[in-house]
Design a protein around this nucleic acid. Sequence first.
DNA 1: CCTACCGATCGGTAGG
DNA 2: CCTACCGATCGGTAGG
Lengths: 196, 196
Amino acid sequence: MTISDSENRRNKLVRAASRLFREKGYDGTTVRDIARAVGLQSGSLFYHFRNKEEILVAVMLNGMRRTSEAAENALARHSEPGERLQALFRAHLETLLGDLQDDMIVLLYEQRSMPAEAREHLITMRDAYERVWQEVIEAAVTAGVVDGDAALIRRFSLGALNWTVQWYRKDGPLSPTELADQFLRTLTGPARIPVT
Amino acid sequence: MTISDSENRRNKLVRAASRLFREKGYDGTTVRDIARAVGLQSGSLFYHFRNKEEILVAVMLNGMRRTSEAAENALARHSEPGERLQALFRAHLETLLGDLQDDMIVLLYEQRSMPAEAREHLITMRDAYERVWQEVIEAAVTAGVVDGDAALIRRFSLGALNWTVQWYRKDGPLSPTELADQFLRTLTGPARIPVT
DNA sequence: CCTACCGATCGGTAGG
DNA sequence: CCTACCGATCGGTAGG
């Protein structure tokens, strides 16, 4: 199966756009910036996308889809509540700080610029993702891995994790996986989570 | 002491701008939007500010200054490590979700649009603020109120707190103060923090 | 996919 | 603080 040249070019445009949107914001990025990044004239961009918003939608859906997939795959390999919580922390942070980091940051911070219909679709996907978190945390509470209200723990955890994009450096001392484990330990207290 | 009309107008512009920057982003807000919000012609705005960036700087400094002041005032009233940590959590969230919420959200999310010199000034202020957090958390670790690495706990906590602007609703069940206490309890585990 | 272009809007200024 | 305006740039289109 070969990837058509047009599809390939489209993907390059989406990747260039996600980097630019992250650096300069959606409103601060021009269609000329994006076209230039892949060696096109600005008018040619509209052969691949109907308008600028459509590029943003592609970036966001990409980030959201990969986040959900990573969580699913990680959870499929564990059944014990503490391990599932750990797998979810790791999957989230590995996706957030991995090679899709640009998409993820745009996903977190440019919701405002989304066209209404696509934004609603994204919110539906995000709600489903948060329900997964809710269930995993509820099971962890029941098992005594963590204490407290599950919804608060979920918001507390996702907030702390999502905020890492503000300060995490790849050349720092901790990998995303190690950082996820450290954060989880902060939440559970020492020695309540299995070491794998 | 009377406030001059000009100063008053300037303040109104800053407040209108902070609301607009929060709603539509800095790049998505035009000087015409801001001027219209206080009943001015767009050209007249430049009688009060040299340029658009200067308005953003005013909003950001406002938010950062009030955050630091709130923390100082809160800490001045406590000496016991657990109480100090609680006071800091409360002060941060009360400022973040209080009547300066627009300024605070702009402060958190529009750093990119700041002119270089003012941005460096803000970073200096933020570093000082985070050092206060670091010291309070280190004291709390020493006192056994929380376990773990102080720098990680600081980032975890500030991340979780700052993220509340994404989902907190004033008409929800918890006040900012109550939410701060709940979050702190999530961090410390049950019954390690004094109830006041 | 390029060339050539358009109408709209932007931040900002001059002169009063 | 308003009027009148400017040069630059924006997202997007027509025709090939």
